[in-house]
């Protein structure tokens, strides 16, 4: 046993430095002799981050999600190979030349996973933006005008929500024909109703709010009232919902591609890569890496959404 471990505590120079700093802080926090008030200690940079973002999950999720977004943005620059270039040696296991191995056509799996980030994350974000916009507009109109407008829009959302999401999306994508654009369109049709419903209920409670009434008394028309008084108060919670939805959307789009209803070969997309891997079950590297990519994207964006929700609504915060 070393000398230091035997005599731990304040004698060590590190310990005394810490103690001195703590005492300096304490000294600063003594009450002011004139006012008798204790000055508020300046928050450290770390403590300025909202508590919901300081949990280990949120930190890891932020790093992972940020990394994926960077990869999606600069993908081609860091990919070691052209994701479409075919090598004469298919089914190489992970190794020095191709760290994730090669697929049945000898394409570099690592480069394809990186290239797939742009497709999967990019389209997921695009889809979420579109369904948020459509859902918010329809939900606001339904909640604000009420009566038959509300009935029509809400029965339509009921209609869409009555079907299982994935199955309805499959039907629509199949009817439209397999392409990435059609897959996004199909996913849009099934994902806007949840926004419409949530926004509608928020608008219903806002519609009776005093500041909305006083705007109407000042002669606001419906459009102005919605734009100025209602929508700004709906945007925050809706954005939280959208951020929670990015992971799910990426999964839905990849699912459609997996079923052959989205991305067409040879374009690199995680879902279609996994579906190709199913044909060669013994070549584990074909499916594992795009699968892991999808998994980390879904989980990290979900935790990010949770943290965002907690910072908007401190009441639901986990300790």
């Amino acid at each position: 046993m070393s000398e230091k471990a035997k005599n731990p505590g304040p004698i060590s120079p590190v310990g005394s430095a810490v103690k001195a700093r703590a005492e300096a802080k304490k000294a600063k926090a003594t009450p002011d002799p004139v006012t008798g008030l204790t000055p508020v200690r300046k928050k450290s940079l770390w403590h300025r981050i909202p508590p919901s973002w300081r949990t280990p999950f949120a930190i890891v999720a932020t790093i992972v999600a940020a990394a994926w977004i960077v990869i999606a943005l600069i993908g081609p620059a860091i990919a070691p190979h052209n994701p479409l270039a075919q090598d004469m040696t298919p089914f190489q296991g992970p190794g020095a030349g191709h760290i994730f191995g090669t697929d049945e056509l000898g394409r570099d799996v690592f480069s394809r996973v990186i290239a797939g980030a742009r497709v999967s994350i990019g389209l997921a974000i695009l889809l979420v933006c579109m369904s948020t916009t459509v859902g918010t507009i329809l939900g606001t109109v339904a909640g604000f005008f009420g009566k038959w407008v509300d009935e029509v829009i809400m029965r339509f959302t009921d209609l869409v929500m009555a079907f299982p999401t994935v199955i309805l999306a499959m039907v629509i994508a199949a009817a439209l024909g397999p392409s990435l654009f059609n897959a996004v369109l199909a996913a849009l049709v099934v994902s806007w109703p949840q926004y419409a419903r949530t926004v509608r209920s928020m608008v219903l409670s806002l519609r009776g709010a005093d500041f909305v009434s006083s705007g109407r008394l000042l002669g606001y028309g419906p459009i102005r009232s919605m734009r100025r008084d209602v929508l700004p108060n709906v945007v925050g919670p809706t954005l939280v919902l959208s951020s929670l939805d990015i992971g799910t959307s990426a999964l839905l789009l990849s699912g459609l591609s997996f079923l052959g209803l989205g991305a067409k070969p040879p374009s690199p997309e995680w879902g279609s890569m996994i579906s190709e891997a199913v044909k060669h079950f013994d070549k584990w590297w074909l499916g594992i890496f795009p699968g892991l990519a999808l998994l980390t994207v879904v989980i990290s964006f979900n935790f990010l959404g949770d943290a965002l929700r907690d910072s908007f609504d401190p009441g639901t915060e986990r300790e």
Partner: peptide, 20 residues
């Protein structure tokens, strides 16, 4: 739901709850 005519914006109100 329609816009109130300027004819009637001569009636204004201050509400009870300062938070809303």
């Amino acid at each position: 739901a329609r816009r109130r005519s300027p004819k009637y914006t001569g009636i204004q109100m201050v509400f009870q709850d300062p938070s809303s």
